[in-house]
Nucleic acid binder design. Structure first.
Lengths: 232, 232
DNA sequence: CGCGCATTTGAATACTTTCAACTATTGTGG
DNA sequence: CCACAATAGTTGAAAGTATTCAAATGCGCG
């Protein structure tokens, strides 16, 4: 229980860069942690104490203004890494969107370990570069897209990232039905909109027959082409 | 001419991680390139052929929609690195905002060199993590701030990044007068606004006595406190 | 089964954009 | 060096889109 051997994301996480012996060392400095939906692990502005890998569940990275406006700046799925290695302060909070399990490391321990293992640092670099690309693409959405384009883009991206990547047969598979790990307010915080605007756009897409909404959290994509066209 | 020895940003760029001998090797695979304002070095969507360090000048990273809307997703100043190492495609274009000099490497050569030099990869990782932090902070601006808050934030950030970092005496120095490396349209593309809105906000700040605008490209910050308050 | 809270829907408002005209700056050729 | 053309920026008015405020609906949990 809780060892790297039995880890669900063992070969997808950055740990895949390590051999058996190194993994043992890493195992010694890490520990499992369970989080309930809504629970935070890292707070914006605080000292960067820990970093982690997601084993199961979905978490959000967010920042806010003093007067309470919030912006979700990243969403972390299983096998992904979060936290701020090699830095003193955390620039955004990290909160579980669903119940989650993560593999946590003291930042200092992790930093020291990573410095001695270039293969791990390389994996981390590749992931960070990829995350930066994804984040920059999201800036186009925030700065230049209309509400309807934002919603369509959001549904497509979420459908893609939510598919369990275990299935190698269809590497480009898209979920056609999904249970969103987000409330309406959280969707608004991802897209830079208000909850009312999100709701109206969902209703509109439903009336157009592009999606179906069996329950609050479930979405069925009926017409993917239409969504792609709408995404701009 | 054009060797690492005489490089203006020699000890600020990632190259600072290398010793004399390694630098010589790196020097052999890199070459200097001059760019005129408006000239592009990398195009969005194309194969990632090269990466580079900025020696002098300012460049923008940008993406756009098919119908011509543009969003600037990053601004690169002297000593900073750009391009997409360890990846096949460039996700955003890179264009000089001012005349510029850069130190270019073939991506393949750079990747190979970096793989063999963990200290260089480490520096690159630290920079990438820092850039990701900065980018995520910008998302709060794009998603949640009003036009006036955006303009104030933009002026403060630009004033900070524009100061030559040579001056060690005042590490937190802010420029009080600056020549913007951006046209009004480019400011609009950074902030997700239209050129008219940018212009109106500038005029408003001027009439309020918060800034002065001696010429199109020059800004004098008269009341920094007011700008900070306005930035939200 | 009913209560509480998330979500939806409606109407009025506010902000940014769009379209259009005007002004100023820069650069060019006579 | 000046005149003028081209480009960049400013300003105004009208329109459009998302927000705000308010009320209603309905899902999900006890």
């Amino acid at each position: 229980m809780g060892s790297c051997d039995s880890c669900l994301v063992r070969n997808r996480a950055i740990c895949a860069a390590l051999d058996a012996k190194e993994l043992e060392t890493l195992n010694a400095i890490g520990r499992r942690r369970e989080l309930h939906a809504g629970e935070s692990l890292i707070w914006e502005g605080e000292e960067s104490i820990l970093v982690a890998n997601v084993i199961e569940g979905v978490l959000k990275l967010s920042t806010g203004t003093q007067d309470g406006r919030e912006q979700i700046v990243g969403v972390v799925y299983p096998s992904e890494f979060f936290g701020r290695p090699f830095g003193t302060t955390s620039n955004h909070g990290v909160t579980a969107l669903t119940d989650a399990r993560v593999c946590v490391f003291s930042r200092r321990d992790f930093d020291a370990f990573a410095r001695g293992h270039p293969a791990l640092e390389h994996k981390l670099l590749e992931r960070t570069l990829g995350e930066l690309d994804r984040t920059r693409r999201w800036m186009l959405l925030l700065g230049r897209k209309s509400a309807s384009e934002k919603i369509a883009s959001f549904l497509l991206e979420t459908a893609d990232r939510l598919v369990e990547p275990g299935c190698k047969v269809h590497p480009d598979a898209h979920a056609t039905r999904m249970t969103l790990p987000f409330s309406r307010q959280q969707i608004a915080d991802v897209l830079g909109l208000t909850i009312e605007t999100v709701s109206r756009q969902f209703s509109h897409l439903k009336h157009e027959g592009v999606i179906d909404l069996p329950s609050r959290r479930d979405v069925v994509i009926l017409d993917r082409e239409a969504l792609v066209a709408e995404a701009g």
